[in-house]
Design a protein around this nucleic acid. Structure first.
Lengths: 334, 334
DNA sequence: TTAGTTTATTAAAACGATTTAGCTAAGGAG
DNA sequence: CTCCTTAGCTAAATCGTTTTAATAAACTAA
């Protein structure tokens, strides 16, 4: 079938061992045999079988990205940038990337949280594991990995405890920036269009909203906080509720960009001038807010950075370095 | 180190062969040994080493996605949906996905077009190859794959000739839809904001623009065609040029959404009413056009479908089925 | 009883590389 | 001349499975 090291050896008139030595550049060989081997390999178009190499070396140089995200969610719409940078960073270190998404098939059956991590690790196929999750992860779900000393890094969640590396985004800090920005623009009647209660990020952004108002001595108005579900339509509905309150808020901090866009649409339909009458600021940094009229300020999540740092942490962990817990700041863009 | 089949065999008091037979469900074993083996495997938490299995079986069940795209481009911004569906479809068939992007490292050195395809194929690591490319691919670049009978499918480009499967999008047809839509709305002064000359898709969309006008007996005005580079800013510049022409066009067909958005912005700044004074329609179906004011009609590229069909073609090809050339229609959404 | 068949199990080969340990020949030191 | 070193090469073991062919035991049929 395909060309093996034996074929090269035969053609070059040497042993397979010699071929291996020449092609891997280890050990000593005479200039003459080196040439013979290289020519033979060239002529036959020989490529080493990576599987065989992996078996004997005991490593595949592949890392696995396990994405636990909602089905409907596009892995890439949001995490595309993350994957790009992750891929770039690990490929530079000589690793390959394999991706598996929750609900999809791995080793025969659909990947689901519990069973997966440990099995995959034990599988011994991968050098390391990147765990990207939308839902909080409990220490017990990764303690086996820690025990086996299997390199992994958690992305987008924080898991305290020994032996765990993670990189997460500072939603609290980012949200504080957003609210501060509005306050510094002179707003005092600031509403918050919050995300679902069960969503950790929504909760953090909400906390930041409350804390920042308190920091500046601005009284909290309960009716200024309306809950949405992160989708545009819920932003519309929430905005409609807000517009019935008097005094009208002069600013809205939306917990994500989609809801901010919904709010903007309703406001415009009512003839309310964005920025002048009501300021709106979102969160996430999706592309669409650049193209609304007017464009909306937003708190940009450093998703690319997330991928890059995840790669760095993982590679360090593979090399036996220490685990690290990193929280990346986000910044507000207008 | 890790648990091997020998460990299981020893604990169960049988030979490794028996363990393999039990765990793979082939061959006959007594109920008694089956139990012993299963218990031992369970107890030790045994997982077969996939690398070893792959070596002996001669297949890794992994397919490789080779993305030849521009560096700055986000693999995922545009192709996210594609990858999602591709991944879903192949994982259902029991295959894993590995991704490598142009410019990133593969097997030691940065992946670049020529060398790559054949080498990778010969590598024997992968069951099949999905080639996603932004640039036209010449038959000679894949003829080696054809010769070696290595399963592959080309996505986003058309390569005529024997032994080649591809799935592409009907840019010409989609663009025709767009122009027809404008004509049916009563427009006769239709401008075209075309993409760069060297870009195949831009060229096809341009051809469709010309052909459709001719079909309807509408005279072509050379000055109504302005070239941009697919970026928003060039859409702005082009629109500014168009607005100096008299008679003013009453409609603009932009070769992509970003340019359409740029055009929209300029028009709005000049106080021109979109739809009433000037209709604009874009191409691509990016999310942002849903949130402009007003939202723009666009020709949606079925990127998810592209991924799904690619997977189907590839799997069929792996199974020894015949090659197919498929062109997917796009549809206009308002 | 004997030959033939079926059943349950396993020894050993294979997959294709890498790596270890050893061998030969040549060169150098005494 | 002998001993030691070194350079250059290779035979054979190894990685962890799967699979083939063989074996032993048990059962069937005549």
């Amino acid at each position: 079938m395909s060309v093996t090291i034996k074929d090269v050896a035969r053609l070059a008139g040497v042993s397979p061992a010699t071929v291996s030595i020449v092609l891997n550049g280890k050990g000593k060989v005479s200039e003459e045999t080196r040439k013979k081997v290289e020519e033979a390999a060239q002529k036959l178009g020989y490529r080493p079988n990576i599987v065989a190499r992996s078996l004997v070396r005991g490593k595949t140089n592949t890392i696995l990205l396990c994405a636990f995200i909602k089905e409907q969610e596009k892995l890439s719409a949001f995490y595309g940038e993350l994957i790009n940078r992750l891929l770039a960073a690990i490929s530079r270190e000589g690793y390959y990337l394999q991706i598996v998404v929750k609900g999809e098939f791995f080793n025969g059956h659909p990947l689901d949280k519990r069973e997966a991590l440990l099995n995959i690790a034990r599988n011994s196929l991968f050098e390391g594991l990147v765990v990207l999750s939308h839902w909080p992860i409990h220490y017990s779900e990764v303690s086996d990995l820690v025990k086996e000393n299997f390199p992994f890094v958690i992305v987008n969640q924080r898991v305290e405890g020994e032996g765990v590396s993670y990189v997460d985004i500072d939603h609290y800090g980012g949200a504080k920036e957003a609210v501060k920005y509005l306050i510094e623009k002179g707003h005092r009647q600031i509403a918050h269009l919050r995300g679902p209660r069960e969503h950790r990020h929504a909760e953090e952004r909400y906390r930041a909203y409350i804390d920042t108002l308190l920091d500046f001595g601005i009284p909290i108005k309960k009716e200024y906080v309306v809950e949405g579900n992160f989708r545009r339509m819920s932003g519309r509905e929430a905005m409609e509720k807000l517009l019935q309150i008097s005094p009208l808020p002069t600013a809205v901090f939306a917990a994500n960009d989609k809801m901010a866009i919904g709010a903007l649409q309703v406001a415009k339909e009512r003839g309310i001038k964005i920025h002048d009458d009501i300021a709106i600021v979102g969160f996430d940094g999706i592309e669409a807010v650049k193209y609304t009229d007017p464009p909306l300020p937003t708190v940009e999540q450093p998703l690319g950075e997330l991928g890059k740092v995840a790669a760095e942490l993982l590679v360090e962990s593979i090399k036996g370095g220490e685990v690290k817990k990193i929280v990346l700041p986000c910044r507000l863009t207008e």
